[in-house]
Design a binder for these strands. Structure first.
Lengths: 235, 235
DNA sequence: CCCCGAATACTTGTATGCAAGTATGTGTGA
DNA sequence: TCACACATACTTGCATACAAGTATTCGGGG
């Protein structure tokens, strides 16, 4: 077997995957579910999805299998595929995972961040304030993700962010649904500032505590969402 | 749409999934990779796997896609599917994830464990000592997993264990390969005892520190494995 | 009018066939 | 003998066909 160095390089180059239909379908379906365009409890037909997206059932199926790993759909043999209802347990699990992974990451980030890294974090917060002033909630959430991702990257463990995101499907549905309730936004920006400030002063413990406190904001919106859309939730 | 309570119950009942060929194939292939029966760098042919396992290419493909998410295989379009070489970055990432998730879990477990829970943990350690005395390394590792899983379950966040396992493919390959080097085993049992003792005394901080310290044992075996099988590693 | 049963129209799971692309081996030419 | 071009035999990605099973609905009997 020819396992030359060159071949391995060409492998890692081409194994991106998102350009293929499978990855594209996965991204589309995941966004449709997280944004509640596909309503919780809704039935999904592989054939209909295949027709709507202009592909065959094969890449649809492979995407649905991945979404099932994310607990975002439930596949019942010979019966149907359903968009998972929002599960309090799944939210709780996701919250636990985020706090554990991102908390551990920001702790490390606080010990490694250089001044220019902190400046980049500050810049993100500025853009968040801009988005808030423009009432551009979508842009706000984009930079929210950017900040959290940057903190994970700074720790040298980008995997913390990707795993956290992968596990946070149910939580992100809450976030997206609460975009119409921007009452928290102002407070969230201030909490971000506290976290970044702790990172600036190289205070790992403080940074982790502040981040974990901040992450709890999202779950605080759950009761409001549940009042608005009781049928989106389990049992 | 008939979303009755009964239907949802029947859904969760049947959505186990492992009985189907897809789940079976995934489990078989994952174990073959983690146990190094399939050597790192080895090329896998969908057709050959399909023939050997007595199924068609479809369930094989779906299993390989999941293994790709686990970073255990690399799929290169029109070229081939390869067992991932052991990656130091992947090991480091897995180590970070395990420490973060299981550390956070054991911290909670220490505050919630009742005497009978601690007794169950003690029983697992006893069985580990038995396995060690019998030089039954496989049984030792089985109860190793049992202990860690129990700690996560006690925290009320079983997801910590399942996610940790899912992310620890590369790390578990090291563990399995180091089964022929049982020099660490004795020490590992003592570390387990320290963790359980901290849980018994309801000392969350102590328990987390002890567990994180214990988890570092696995990576300490990496240099030995790398000396034994340099071709199993990346670059 | 109600109840029960069978046919029907779906669903997902699996198998297979085709398309696009790459590495390799072979044969030919210099 | 070496180099280059082409044919061949693979690979995975995707599309399609078939199998197994379930809910629904329509029709007939009581």
């Amino acid at each position: 077997m020819a396992t030359s160095r060159d071949m391995r390089i060409s492998i890692s180059e081409r194994a991106s995957g998102t350009s293929r239909a499978r990855g594209r379908v996965y991204a589309i379906l995941r966004d449709a579910i997280v944004s509640a365009e596909f309503e919780p409890g809704q039935r999904l037909s592989e054939s209909e999805l295949a027709e709507r997206l202009g592909v065959s059932r094969t890449p649809i199926r492979e995407a649905l299998v991945r979404l099932r790993d994310d607990r975002l759909v439930e596949i019942v043999p010979q019966l149907g595929t359903y968009v998972s209802r929002i599960s309090r347990q799944a939210i709780d699990d996701a919250q636990f995972v985020r706090e554990a992974l991102e908390g551990a990451a920001v702790r490390i980030a606080a010990t490694r961040a250089r001044p220019e890294d902190v400046a980049a974090l500050d810049a993100i917060i500025v853009r968040q304030r801009d988005a808030f002033r423009d009432s551009d909630v979508a842009r706000f959430y984009f930079f929210d993700d950017e900040l959290h991702r940057s903190l994970c990257d700074l720790s040298g463990h980008g995997v913390a962010w990707s795993l956290s995101q992968r596990a946070s499907g149910h939580l992100n549905r809450i976030r997206r649904l609460s975009m119409t309730l921007p009452a928290y936004i102002d407070e969230m920006i201030e909490e971000h500032a506290v976290v970044v400030d702790a990172v600036r002063r190289s205070e790992p413990e403080e940074a982790e505590v502040a981040l974990r406190e901040h992450l709890k904001m999202v779950v605080s919106a759950v009761p409001d969402i549940e009042r608005l859309h009781p049928d989106y939730f389990e049992s």
